[in-house]
Design a protein around this nucleic acid. Structure first.
Length: 228
DNA sequence: CCAGACGTTGTT
DNA sequence: GTCTGG
DNA sequence: CCAGACGTTGTT
DNA sequence: GTCTGG
């Protein structure tokens, strides 16, 4: 699945990469630790030239209270679920990322976090769904990230992964009909994703700084002390 | 008909 | 154990 | 996703 | 809003 994200690409590079501009109230700043409940930067099908901020946790438009919400949706059946029906049918979006985080469970119960990104790409896009919840005196623009089976790289880490779109499928994802979009929800089909181990510093969402993405150094961690 | 749910993930 | 907050 | 809280009463 | 369960 995908429960933590980052977006630290320089704004100019990000805008060039997606051919879109951060909207006036997008208040873009590099982020290294974006948790559910924070804002994600996305491009919607209704404004494919804009990068906007949406609350990460989809609240169905018909909900009475803006509580709970969905941080992920299974792409295999999202179109058949009531909570996602409207968003699936008409509200696809691109969720921008410089790198996502996944945790690998180990036998001892501890978890090893990984940073996953696309080689030679300043940012990539995950498939998402957006909607707008309107209350009496509150409006929440919100988003969820679609998940699927892991590809070969991710399989060693986790049993789910977000739908990562090949770059040439990004515009199709926004423009296609629901049946065609479902076909795009595949385990990432190319070999250019890379994963590396990072410190458990990422576990605490308060640690939102470049240190989070530094590769884990086994020598410094002491594991290499005995081999020399 | 009305009432009540509507979801994912991981873990036990 | 389970929910809320980040 | 993980981290951290999880409660009441009365008093300041 | 829309489906399922009673």
């Amino acid at each position: 699945m995908c429960g933590r994200n980052s977006l630290f690409t320089e704004q100019d590079d990000l805008e060039d990469r997606f051919g879109a501009e951060v909207v006036a109230d997008g208040s873009y700043r590099p982020r290294h630790n974006i948790a559910p409940g924070d804002d994600l930067h996305i491009i919607t099908n209704e404004a494919s030239d804009e990068i906007a901020r949406y609350h990460w946790s989809l609240i169905p438009f018909w909900a009475n209270e803006p509580e709970g919400g969905m941080i992920n949706a299974r792409s295999e059946n999202a179109g058949e679920k009531r909570v996602f029906e409207r968003a699936w049918n008409s509200r696809p979006c691109l969720v921008l990322s410089s790198g996502l985080y996944e945790w690998r469970s180990t036998n001892g119960g501890s978890k090893q976090p990984f940073q996953i990104h696309r080689e030679d790409d300043p940012a990539f896009a995950m498939a998402g769904l957006w909607d707008v919840w309107e209350g009496e005196d509150e409006t929440i623009s919100c988003v969820t990230i679609l998940t699927t089976e892991p590809n070969d790289l991710m399989n060693s880490i986790h049993d789910r992964m977000p739908v990562v779109l090949p770059q040439d499928a990004e515009s199709d994802w926004l423009a296609a009909d629901p049946d065609t979009r479902k076909e795009l929800c595949q385990p990432y089909p190319k070999g250019d994703l890379d994963a590396y181990e990072i410190s458990t510093r990422v576990n605490n969402p308060g640690n939102d700084d470049p240190q989070v993405i530094e590769p884990l150094d086994h020598e410094q961690s002491g594991l290499g002390e005995f081999s020399s």
